[in-house]
Write a protein that binds this DNA or RNA. Structure first.
Lengths: 194, 194, 194, 194
DNA sequence: GATGAATGAGCATTCATTCAT
DNA sequence: CATGAATGAATGCTCATTCAT
């Protein structure tokens, strides 16, 4: 990658970061290209130099976040700790992502309504891998005798659903700190698996 | 209420029902007046005979559903059964609503972004009452010694969040029936309170 | 004219009167059929029983007022008083009409923009007769030696224009009474003719 | 102001000029954004690049004309000529504006029906200054002994009203030239003040 | 005769997208 | 590369008009 390419790549990342930020604030349905450009002190026309269209920008935006969080999850899976500890860590990471990137898991609802063609597939594949990782953690826990849940997939749905909902009510000014909340959520959701 | 008024009331309900349906399919941000009208084989102009504007239509749409589900919850609260049974019943009703009226609880996210003035207040008040009812069920359970959860509000958030998420993945063609799912959800979520 | 016809005629007049009222308040561009109907505690559909369409309603509305004021002017012309007195009386009547029927003379601006076909002709013919009557009063005054204005038509335009403008600023709560204003206007405008 | 800004400013002026033109022809109630755009061989969407909305476009349109004519009036006031000559010059300018910008003084009728918030204030303030300038000319004339009118404000109303009305009937193809008309109007209206 | 209901054309406005410079 | 400018499709809303009952 030469200098020019690196510069372009850097700019693309800047755009994605800003886009994520605006989307977190306004919701991705409400976010216009103008909004994203304004955040970067650019004009919206320029965005089209880096991304073919809005959908593509949104795609990379979400893809980037999903990739990042997936990496974190994979690392947790390989750590040498109990399944309970792994699951708690995974839940905390999920909560963290849901809070920071408010809208990210909302697109899981109907990716095909937002993305088209190949993009859907990539997103769906990542979301599937995401779910699969949680399922594996649960399965490991069962095999080790730590968990005893029967409906593994539904348990996973419950855990992720509960965690996603945090974006609706969490506020930095709230009664509890992010860390306290994450601790309680992790503890309570673990009960489901026991 | 005379015949004509009944007819109008009926028509309004028809519109609300159809609107709910379209909203469930497309999400309420994506639903246009045209969409709603088309579902009813009307023209969009006609909708304005019954509702002042889109926001009002959306408001009554949601208000109606919330009122219905609140009624059901209140009845449960007064039944002569254990707190665990009440909570399970409440969860099942919530799941049922979340499945049938896919978008309904999504507006809980930011009612003030969708509704204006008095409408926000009504919606917020209903949502508060909704939460309050769940909190009361939890408190009763604790007082009766059935539940022992400490962070009551967070537990409620977890339960409702988990249940809301069902709209994302439930399908009538899925592996499990709605009843089976409701049963599992109710059982698993109860663990959090124990 | 039998009873039924008389009833219809009466109703038509009621509508015209109410329409005039609403038009005075809101301006005829802003007045909707709904507004007119509401004033009469009718529904707008009913208006179409009496008038083919909005334009026709507006036409009769204006035609009625013009006819009335024309009658008054003709009577003044035939009175046995000086030309100055006649002109003063005519000005007062014009002012009176301009105040009461705020919008009436505004349609003189471009009747063909508002009315179509035959209606334009009738209105234009009445407006012409209206102008003609003023011109005759001026001519009489000149012949009697009371007036000495040279540009008769322009003088008439000035007089009527000045009087029309009263609708813009006259208010019953103002500093001067309608009668005082009419007196001053008549006196001052007479100077032009002298 | 660099080249680009000058170009934008020029375009804005072009739009305002075209808008004025269309408004003169159709009246500002009847003028649609489409009409204005068509006159400029643009699409209506483009207008929104230069003006926030229709009201703002209309505002600047009127504000520009009022500012221009106010400047001219102020200059006349400071000239070293008799009050009669000043008043005649002022009347001619007013007539000129009324003819060229047909609709401009019609908004004086009810600015608050057309403009909102700050815009009303600006317009009303300009209209007030406009009236004030005429009043001052009249007062000066009285002090110099040239005029002897008693009801100064009503005289001003009469003069401006008469002049406004010219837009209704003036046509370049008419019997008299614009200059002839202005001369006659100025002479005749002066009589009121004497 | 009167009304409730429905319609459709028209209008202001938004916004993703394009493109010449 | 970036931007200013323009476009056109979409959308909410209004309102004159129609018509069955």
């Amino acid at each position: 990658m030469n200098l020019r390419e690196r510069k372009t790549a850097k700019k693309k990342e800047d755009i994605l970061r800003s886009a994520s930020l605006v989307i977190s604030r306004k919701g991705f349905r409400q976010t216009t290209m103008e909004d994203i450009a304004a955040e970067l002190l650019m004009t919206k026309g320029s965005l089209y130099y880096y991304f073919k269209n809005k959908e593509e920008l949104l795609f990379y935006c979400h893809e980037h976040i999903l990739t990042t969080v997936l990496d974190k999850l994979r690392k947790i899976k390989q750590q040498d700790i109990t399944s309970s500890e792994k699951m708690k860590a995974a839940i905390k990471i999920h909560l963290d992502t849901a809070i920071r990137e408010r809208e990210i898991f909302n697109l899981a609802i109907k990716p095909e309504q937002i993305f088209s063609g190949d993009h859907v597939e990539v997103i769906v594949q990542k979301l599937d891998e995401y779910a699969e990782l949680f399922d594996q953690l649960i399965l490991q826990g069962i095999q080790k005798g730590e968990f005893s849940v029967v409906q593994k997939k539904m348990a996973r749905m419950i855990i992720l659903g509960a965690a996603n909902w945090i974006q609706v009510w969490y506020s930095p000014e709230g009664e509890f700190s992010k860390e306290e909340i994450e601790q309680v959520y992790a503890d309570y959701l673990l009960k489901i698996l026991k």
